[in-house]
Simulated assay, not measured.
Amino acid sequence: MKKLLHIDSSVLGPHSVSRQLSAAIVDRLCQTTPDIQITYRDLSATPLTHLSGADLAAAQGAASPDAALAQELAAGQSVMDEFLAADTVVLGAPMYNFTLPSQLKAWIDRIVVAGKTFKYDAQGPKGLAGDKRVVVAISRGGFYGPGTPAAALEHLESYLRGIFGFIGVTKLEFIFADGIQAGHEHREKALSSALQAVTSLHAA
């Protein structure tokens, strides 16, 4: 049975465009692969703690952690287990201040782990997650595509391409909704165009 991991990170709840798009992507993949098993994680409703020195020390075999740190480590292991088990990851990623939400960064810090999703050898780093498909729903208030005046401020798509590429993901797809803060007409047009693009996604 195929497994799908659905991640949302927007803090806007039902008003979020990235959440609408990620839900539409999951619906599309369920239609094309009816027996798919879905795991859902809402990083806004249940945020992970940010990576700390104590986390890293515990990972290197430091003394037994206290109860609070043990809980954080267990949450991090659960995130890693979900990611490793998934055949497909659907990620809702809004742009906040030209980059990704800190909640999403905390999740990424739990899945980019040496020996788990990448390793180093004589040739340098090697990704270990190349068997996964990742579909990212990006929503941005303005316009950040190549050639736009704000292109140099785009640190969301570029970061996600870099980090997933680093861990070996080659099946990486993006659905974009740009200009959602440029007025109601732009928002509706962007959402409609993105939802239309979702219908072209192939089976999971």
Rank of each mutant, 00 (worst) to 15 (best):
Q60P: 11
G61E: 09
S64E: 15
P65Q: 02
A67N: 07
A68Y: 00
A68K: 08
L69I: 05
A70V: 02
A70E: 13
A70R: 14
A70N: 14
Q71E: 09
Q71D: 15
L73G: 14
A75G: 06
A75L: 08
G76M: 06
G76T: 03
Q77C: 04
M80C: 09
D81F: 00
F83N: 09
A85F: 08
A85K: 04
A86L: 05
D87Q: 06
D87T: 10
D87V: 11
T88G: 07
T88K: 00
T88Y: 00
V90M: 14
L91K: 08
L91C: 13
G92F: 04
G92L: 09
P94K: 03
Y96S: 00
N97W: 06
F98D: 00
P101I: 10
S102Y: 12
L104F: 05
L104D: 04
A106C: 08
W107H: 04
D109L: 09
I111D: 13
V113H: 05
V113G: 11
A114W: 10
A114M: 04
A114S: 08
A114K: 11
G115S: 14
G115P: 08
K116I: 02
T117N: 11
F118H: 02
F118S: 03
F118R: 03
Y120Q: 02
D121M: 05
D121T: 03
Q123T: 06
G124H: 00
K126W: 02
K126P: 14
G127E: 11
L128G: 03
A129P: 06
K132C: 15
K132F: 07
V136T: 11
I138V: 12
S139A: 14
R140F: 10
G142P: 07
Y144A: 03
Y144G: 00
Y144R: 00
G145I: 06
P146K: 06
P146R: 01
G147H: 04
G147T: 06
P149A: 04
A150I: 02
A152C: 15
A152V: 14
E154N: 04
L156R: 02
E157I: 12
S158G: 12
S158W: 10
L160C: 02
G162H: 10
I163G: 13
G168K: 06
V169Y: 05
V169E: 09
V169R: 00
F176S: 02
A177H: 01
D178I: 02
D178M: 05
G179Y: 01
Q181E: 15
Q181L: 15
Q181H: 15
A182F: 14
A182T: 15
G183C: 10
H186P: 11
H186V: 07
R187E: 14
E188D: 09
K189A: 12
L191W: 01
L191G: 07
S192M: 00
Q196A: 09
Q196E: 15
Q196Y: 08
L201N: 02
A204K: 04
A204R: 01
